[in-house]
Amino acid sequence: MTMTFLLLACDTNPADSGAAETADTGSPDTADSADTGAESGDSAGDSGDTADTADTSETDWCTASVVQFAGSDGVVEDVTASFLSGAYLTLDAPGTLHVCPGTWYSRVLVRAAIVVEGHGATPADTVMSGGESGTILDVLGPVGTLEVRNVTLDRGVGLDVDHNSGGGGIYCEGEGTVLAEDVVFSNNFANDGPGLYVRYCETTVTRSEFVDNIAEDDGGAATIWYANAAFDEVTFTRNTALDGGALCVFYGSATVTNSVIEGNQSEHFAGGVWTNESTLFMSDTRIADNHNTVDNGGGLLLAGEGTLERVTFEDNEAPRGGGLFVYYESIVTCTNCSFAGNVAEDVYVADYSSAGGVSLTGSDDWSFSCASNVCTTTE
């Protein structure tokens, strides 16, 4: 593994940037990078030893250090220094990054198949903070798979114009795969997809949360370009964007199941979710209290093809299509969906008539389909 350190002229304490404080969990004193090891007689804690080869199958990763990288070749390296100094860490060989409980200043350039594993009881115990200075996990393919588990990605900022200033938490471009499980994406900022921005990377997010992220343009929580993405048991709350307050999908496909999209806001299109020339499958999901103050779609704006099963649209608001806005020529099937309290109407179907479209009023367990700008109730 090559470690590249790029020192930045910024505050190296993420807590000073507003990152969440984390209680003392018994890990070593992180204020002094020289004291991150065990007793001097322990080879893992010996300041002169930066790598060891050992059986890592039952290692207590938080006894000897704060952050360690276990390469697939069996070599273990203490990489705590980069998480204290404000330096970028480059990982260009496969392995697992073990992160102990605490709040750590984290910017990692992922250039190989990497697992990031938090060792707290919950994601809130292990906070990887970008310190409002850059992307936390930057993936440039082809790299294989990035797996992220049991951590919070907080206060990352998409600053790189070569990345379309996207992705404060995770940025992935190229022939790669992103798997996020039990991850909290919070307080991230970017032009597009501040929590998660993927371009060509296949993506699966499970049992995770996107909260309080802000995009200047598209996708207040996440933006997907030219890729397939799946979200299961994911909550999107209090995210904000110009378009797509929670999620944007462009020229790709998304599957959203057993999820909650609530309390998000946009200033143009889609307070909740916007799919554009894409395919959406959504089931057993609640879309509620999302707001679009200017244009189309409070909860969901669908442009392309969509299959919705047992989706609840409740108390969403937009000038047109408070619950669901069906764009011109889009094909939508909605089975046993429920609508209540949406403003200005539950469903708006855009067409080429002089009126510009048709407003529909839904109900509980309502099924309908739309094609060629015409909607038909099927039950």
Rank of each mutant, 00 (worst) to 15 (best):
A229H: 00
G130P: 05
L280M: 15
Y88Q: 10
L242S: 11
A81M: 06
L179S: 12
P14I: 04
E58I: 12
T122W: 11
G48A: 07
V294A: 14
V178R: 02
N13F: 06
A215M: 13
G272H: 03
V75Q: 14
G71Y: 01
F189S: 05
Y328K: 11
A15D: 10
L196S: 01
L159D: 04
D218S: 09
R149F: 06
V273D: 06
D217S: 10
A221Y: 02
V116W: 01
V99L: 10
D160S: 11
S330W: 01
D35K: 08
G263N: 06
N13P: 06
V249L: 13
S82C: 12
S43W: 11
L137Y: 01
N150H: 13
L308G: 00
V161T: 13
N258T: 07
V161G: 02
H98P: 02
I114E: 00
Y251V: 13
F236H: 04
N336Y: 09
L324I: 11
G263Y: 02
L91I: 08
A230P: 06
S17Y: 09
W225T: 03
Y352D: 14
G45M: 01
D138I: 03
S43Q: 10
G321P: 00
A81D: 08
V127G: 05
S106K: 04
T63C: 12
S186A: 14
L137F: 05
E21P: 03
N292S: 12
L159R: 02
G297E: 04
S129I: 11
G297Y: 03
S57V: 14
S266I: 02
F313L: 12
D125F: 02
T240G: 04
P194G: 08
A15K: 13
T376S: 14
D11M: 11
P123I: 03
G362A: 12
D160F: 08
A344V: 09
T307C: 06
D138L: 09
D217T: 07
T223P: 05
G144C: 10
N258I: 11
G86I: 05
G118W: 03
F281K: 11
E329V: 04
N292M: 15
A38T: 12
G272M: 05
F339A: 06
G195R: 04
H119A: 04
